[in-house]
């Protein structure tokens, strides 16, 4: 195993933020930690990287204990923080060279690595421009590039696509996929289930500091049994409907957001009309209806009764 987390716990004051979290990542595997804001993803990652002490459990990198004082194991990890962690008054190349040096590289080898990374993140032609002049998407890409200059065995990406335009986002996901096929293990946190679905071999769903479900996407979907996912689009006020819909016996969960009502229910094809009746009774307009098999979002909804993003 490249990474094993065994029952790690972290408290801030009397607030337990990471509670008995265990998971492992095999070499070459991409593992997703999927969870809403404040679930404890960043805290878990900080502990894995030895940046934050833990109150219990252990982190093993390639079978060896990783603590806040451990230095040597760190070169196995490429850490990409959730926030942009770059020097704006240095150029892209200078940022890459600086962090590459800290990894112990120098001379022509360092230069080669830096040029490679600049290619991968598509910034070769802007290499000598100051980061302060970069767009949001470019800074995001460089933020990721810095984490992979030393070709770590485990790349840890903490919500790398937050606030990124669709084009940059696609480039980032593509780059991660490519690295994964080249054999790099990846720990990827996100609250976008589409990203987890596209990238990850296995996913851990984390909420309130606990991993509440784990497995391949198929495993997870199987957990919620023979349920269907219905999405109803509407410009009307949906929140008052949620309670009435959840009261229906065949409905597992319902949630409303961004003009969409998502319902997890048994026998969707047949029971949908009962739900639409409620729309009619409440005089709420319906713009569109869709029935799908459950996805990770539905799994999260089923397990927690809440949507992944609010």
């Amino acid at each position: 195993m490249i990474l094993e987390c065994k029952s790690i716990r972290k408290r801030f004051g009397d607030h337990t933020v990471v509670d008995d979290v265990s998971f492992y990542i095999a070499p070459g595997e991409t593992y997703g930690l999927l969870g809403p804001n404040g679930a404890g993803k960043t805290t878990t990652i900080s502990i894995v990287c030895g940046l934050l002490g833990k109150d219990g459990g252990e982190v093993l990198i390639k079978g060896q204990q990783m603590n806040t004082g451990t230095v040597s194991l760190r070169s196995a990890i490429g850490y990409v923080p959730q926030e942009i962690a770059l020097y704006p008054e240095l150029s892209a190349r200078e940022n890459l060279v600086f962090f590459g040096r800290l990894q112990g590289f120098k001379g022509p080898q360092l230069k080669r690595r830096v040029d490679e990374v600049l290619d991968v993140i598509g910034l070769a032609d802007r290499a000598d421009d100051l980061v302060a002049e970069f767009s949001g998407g470019m800074t995001r890409r460089l933020n990721i590039g810095v984490g992979m200059t030393h070709r770590p065995e485990l790349l840890i990406l903490d919500e790398p696509t937050v606030g990124v335009d669709p084009q940059s986002r696609n480039a980032i996901l593509g780059a991660v996929e490519r690295l994964a096929t080249e054999g790099m293990a990846v720990l990827y946190t996100t609250h976008y289930m589409e990203e987890a679905e596209r990238l990850c071999n296995r996913v851990g769903i984390i909420d309130h500091g606990s991993v509440i479900a784990e497995g391949t996407q198929r495993d997870l979907v199987r957990q919620i049994g023979q349920l269907d996912r219905v999405t109803i689009e509407s410009p009307g006020a949906l929140s008052p409907l949620v309670e009435q819909i959840e009261a229906l016996t065949f409905v597992s969960t319902a949630s409303a957001k961004e003009g969409q009502l998502r319902v997890l229910l048994r026998d969707g094809g047949r029971n949908l009309t009962r739900i639409l009746h409620l729309f009619e009774d409440n005089d709420v307009e319906v713009r569109g209806v869709q029935i799908d098999v459950p996805d990770l979002e539905a799994v999260f909804l089923h397990l927690t009764g809440r949507a992944l993003r609010d």
């Binding site: 850490y79 923080p81 962690a85 962090f99 800290l102 990894q103």
Partner: peptide, 12 residues
């Protein structure tokens, strides 16, 4: 600017 965390995540 989180570069401190990044330095400390390196083998230093």
């Amino acid at each position: 600017q989180h570069t401190m965390q990044r330095m400390l995540a390196a083998p230093v």
